[in-house]
Amino acid sequence: MSNAPMADLERIDFSKISFLVVEPNRLMGQMVRDVLLMLDAQYIDRARDYQSAIQLLKVGRIDVMITEWALSHEVTGKNGMDIVHWVRNDPASPNPFMPIVMMTANSEEEYVCRARDAGVSEFVAKPYTVQGFYTRLAAAIARPRRFVRVEDYFGPDRRRRSSDTYDGPERRIPAEPN
């Protein structure tokens, strides 16, 4: 019998998971779909804009959403961030705790921070590697983070590390050495 820790032996059965891929670029959406199919995913819905994504989400069977930030603006003027906001905060959202992977060419730090502050679970910068995509997808599914509700935010805990030495009321950063 293996001595590996239990967590190392865990596997993800992608055939049990319903995905929604929101991607305006047909070819890029197809590639994500093909990777998911190769992982044995059976339920993959696709949308190219805000409205069709919301319609699919309202049905209530989506477990994981993978979305681009930049969507076609012609009809609604809304983008992937608006979908994230809807999932996390709209009373009509069937699952505000849904893992959301943002996969986007808007990859600069300011975008990563904005996505995190909107409640995205994981961020994948395009162009991406399959390994990078898989690692973040697997983390979103198998390692869900606790959620936080504060005045202006509802979503996964944005602190990925915690301090063992501080037990006060607000987060602290280590002091600069003199």
């Binding site: 967590a7 596997r11 059965d13 705790f97 198998a142 509700r149």
Partner: peptide
């Protein structure tokens, strides 16, 4: 802030020790 424990529904549905793909 109100902290809510991680949602386990998806883990319970899809994560197991037998079938599927390892995390790494």
């Amino acid at each position: 802030p109100v902290f809510l424990p991680p949602a386990q529904d998806l883990r319970l549905k899809a994560v197991n020790l037998k079938k599927g793909y390892p995390l790494k």
